[in-house]
Amino acid sequence: MKLLEIRNLAVEFATSRGRFRAVDGVDLTLDAGEILCVVGESGSGKSVTMLALMGLIAWPGKVSADVMRFDGTDLLGLSPRQRRKLIGRDIAMVFQEPMTSLNPCYPVGWQIAEALRAHAAVPRAKVRDRVVELLDQVGIPAPASRMGAFPHQLSGGMNQRVMIAMAIACTPRLLIADEPTTALDVTIQKQILDLLIGLQRQHGMGLVLITHDMGVVAETAQRVQVMYAGQMVEEQGTDGLFATPRHPYTAALLDALPERAMGRPRLPTIPGMVPGIDDRPDGCLFNPRCRFTFDRCITTPPALASIGDARARCHTPLDGQGRPA
């Protein structure tokens, strides 16, 4: 059984200018012990997808899906109470801003303990020991003495470690990390990513890592989903994605990386920008910016097509040489 299975997820927001589909037709499956990266630019809907999964989309947002199952449990049919029991215990999340995700009024140890108490994960007498053990596990030096520290006394990297400790407190089976290292320096980012992967292996968790950084994807993921304007446009194994991207957007995104442009005076770019609420094109959402736009692309929205091991939302997925099939 899949640990997580989502089919045809859509999230709609009622705005003053009509309904807006922030996420549309997203499929997401994850096995236990697998690392999936969801990559996309700002506004691509990657964070909204995860918030929908956690049941954290507030009014006026509306979530719908054909299937949304976690370990066999139907998430759509859960009562808020049952959902709260599941979330935080079996599914946990780490956010982008460690400084604002922690409550500045309480010591970090207390906040981790609260997560333990909320789900009665360990007997009351053992809570303290467990907190120390968790802090130690996430690589915080002198954990016993750091329990009483407040978030402002710790660095960004240390706070993110605390957030991770909180997330794994109840040994979840699925961990969702939403841009967990974007606010951190490179050397700290590396440490946090290594920590996340280490914990994932150790506990056999499923890990969904949301990021905009292709380098992070390449170094952590086993499988990648690329999102564009609220849609999943490509899904592939990591090595395949970087060697032979199937969707023109993925290919263009990789080409635009300075790292891939060694020796070239100018970077290949993607013209224009991600469509907003008002300027969604007909047909394929990427067609105004695509290098290979055909008549069909402007009139008909493409479905997900399988090509090799990959799936791409394109009428003419790219072949191994980067040409449309």
Binding site: T187, D213, G215, V217, A218, E219, D239, L257, E259, R260
Partner: peptide, 18 residues
Amino acid sequence: AATPSVDPAHRKVTEVIK
């Protein structure tokens, strides 16, 4: 070593980052 790279060769670097 800490800068993530899309180059598979980079993944072999094992500099200690602490």
